[in-house]
Nucleic acid binder design. Structure first.
Length: 548
RNA sequence: GCGCCGGUAGCUCAGCUGGAUAGAGCAUCAGCCUUCUAAGCUGAGGGCCACUGGUUCGAAUCCAGUCCGGCGUGCCA
């Protein structure tokens, strides 16, 4: 981590010593509390170039350090040459004022001000209902978008879909078959690889209600009506599900518009001009082998239809052309194969693919009572995201789906998720928040006006108080790291630690019934904690109820 | 076969741009409510960080190889 005060005094010391070698001055929190509040390994880094032992260098640095004794109580050399720094309570108390002045904006940094990012997530085609996998994608994507917002980016949340391809045709014929089975012929054959989900029957029932027997001839016009009906039905359901998760995207980008606007044609033409595409066996191939990949791939099938690669490439160019500084894609692990193709395609068009950041998340397995709940697309008996939301609620769903690293296979334990108890990590955070609200309410009921500007924070000297302040101070940097690494779970872990630090404070330090000075200082601290928890939970998209 | 991800406590997982004695939650065991929400707090036990070799002051972390699991490897998306 960086610390501006420490950085300044250390750079001054190194300058005095006339150190001109390369180094990376960073401060970190030691695992062991006896080693102080922060440490740096700068002396080790300089050992080789200066040809001195780390301990000797560390001592020289300390000799040259000039610092405010009001803020730093101790700087010492330890172990192999670590420099440990210990702050005074006064230092921490002062930080609290700083947090207070930022108020509900605390945590926000304008690091990326003026920069635009597009985050594309969910992007399920309107051919069915969202399931658990989409849920993880949605939760990670939306939280990531929040993180970008909190680190200064101007964020566009985007959903990409295709309502024209094979999948849509498949849905259409599946609905038609169900419709026919209901409307005229119970034995009407169901397509070989059709959509077996029970929702298709529901769609057919509604279709029958609206159109009666009108569509039984299955003319092209009839099928178009059915297709549109199915698409609208699915999209409506998808959007409602997302809304339940507090997800509202800004742009719904239709793949079809790439064709209508001639963007697919343009890409094909350019690739041909650059001699990167060629005809073979009736299909158009893209010469990925000339772009650093192993094999050439088909981009237009011999039937004349493009494969997914072509519109994907055109779509990414389109996004880059819209002027984003960063274009983020969120995919499940099953889409990994498309990534190198799309990036190579974008490079082939002369664009900077380093602006594209692809995040691949691993799968989710649903567990119940220690057994895996099997998802079966064939039988149509699947546990949808809506089912899950009905079952455990939006807060638990969002939290559980982001609480692990994106690269880790996620085990979603229904038994724990359903439990409204200490086993459930969501409630741990919400309980801390509710406790704060409850106590502040009690204090307010006493009717005394407290002037926050005049509270004397030097009364906060208990270990639990200082530890809580330390935790609260880490919030902005935590959001930065989580955004930078694209790892929302970092925020989950952080907030759990904030809640834990608060619970200890709550346990050790009584508020009501203590002397006024101490009481007011502690109320102040509780208020700051409330702000951090609330802001943090809003980043996660989890609600912060005042009562539990 | 090849590519990507993972293998850390009984279970689920952090830590992975190298740092001091490897962490958390759950589970197990032992404590703490006449006072602000016990959905809480305190403590204990629990580990060849998959394996082997390498890099260096120092490796769970980096490199190479091996083994195990997941996902890919289409004129499906």
């Amino acid at each position: 981590m960086t610390n501006s005060y420490l950085t300044t005094i250390f750079l001054n010391a190194l300058e005095k010593m006339q150190v001109k070698h390369e180094y990376n001055l960073i401060f970190d929190i030691p695992r062991n509390k006896d080693h102080g509040d922060l440490y740096t390994n700068i002396a080790m880094q300089l050992a080789k170039p200066l040809k001195k032992s780390p301990q000797v260098i560390a001592n020289e640095i300390i000799t040259n350090l000039q610092y405010d004794k009001e803020l730093i109580s101790e700087i010492s050399v330890a172990g192999a040459g670590f420099i440990n720094i210990k702050f005074t309570n006064n230092y921490y108390q002062k930080q609290l004022y700083q947090i207070y002045s930022e108020g509900s904006k605390y945590g926000y940094t304008d690091l990326n001000a003026g920069k635009k990012v597009n985050v594309e997530y969910v992007s399920a085609n309107p051919t069915g209902l969202l399931h658990l996998g989409h849920g993880r994608n949605a939760a990670i994507g939306d939280t990531l978008a929040n993180l970008y917002k909190w680190t200064g980016w101007e964020v566009t949340r985007e959903y990409y879909f295709n309502n024209a391809g094979n999948q849509m045709m498949n849905l259409t014929s599946s609905i038609y078959a169900r419709y026919m089975q209901l409307a005229s012929d119970p034995d009407f054959p169901f397509p070989e690889d059709g959509y077996h989900g029970s929702y298709v029957i529901t769609i057919a029932e509604e279709l029958l209600q609206k159109y009666s027997q009108e569509l039984i001839n299955g003319t092209e016009k009839d099928l178009e009506i059915i297709r549109k009906f199915g698409e609208n039905w699915c999209f409506d359901k998808i959007k409602k599900t997302l809304a339940r998760m507090n997800i509202f995207q800004d742009v719904f980008y239709n793949e079809d518009s790439l064709y209508k606007d001639g963007k697919i044609e343009a890409v094909l033409k350019e690739l041909k001009e650059k001699n990167l595409s060629y005809e073979k066996e009736g299909a158009t191939w893209l010469a990925f082998s000339k772009l650093g990949l192993e094999d050439d791939r088909v981009i237009v099938k011999s039937t004349g239809e493009p494969t997914y690669r072509l519109p994907d490439i055109a779509y990414h160019r389109e996004k880059l052309n819209r002027g984003y500084d960063l274009v983020v894609d969120l995919f499940g692990a099953d889409h990994i194969a498309t990534v190198p193709d799309v990036l190579a395609g974008v490079r082939a068009l002369g664009l900077d693919d380093s602006k594209i950041k692809v995040i691949i998340h691993q799968f989710v397995t649903l567990m119940e009572n220690g057994e895996q709940v099997k998802m079966s697309k064939r039988t149509g008996k699947s546990y949808t995201l809506d089912d899950l939301l009905d079952d455990v609620g939006a807060d638990v769903v969002r939290y559980f789906l982001i609480m692990r690293g994106v690269n880790t296979h996620l085990e979603f334990d229904l038994s724990i998720a359903r439990e409204q108890s200490d086993k459930n990590p969501v409630f741990y955070l919400q309980y801390a928040y509710a406790r704060i609200c409850s106590i502040l309410e009690k204090v307010a009921a006493e009717g005394k006006n407290i002037d926050f500007e005049k509270i004397d924070l030097t009364f906060l000297n208990e270990v639990a108080e200082i530890n809580l302040i330390k935790q609260l101070m880490l919030f902005p940097e935590t959001l930065q790291v989580a955004a930078e690494k694209a790892e929302p779970h970092i925020v989950c872990e952080y907030l759990r630690e904030v809640a834990a630090a608060f619970h200890v404070f709550y346990h050790d330090c009584r508020i009501i019934g203590t002397d006024d000075e101490i009481k007011y200082a502690r109320i102040f601290l509780a208020n700051i904690t409330k702000i951090v928890l609330k802001n943090g939970m809003s980043v996660l998209g989890v609600s912060s109820p005042e009562k539990m």
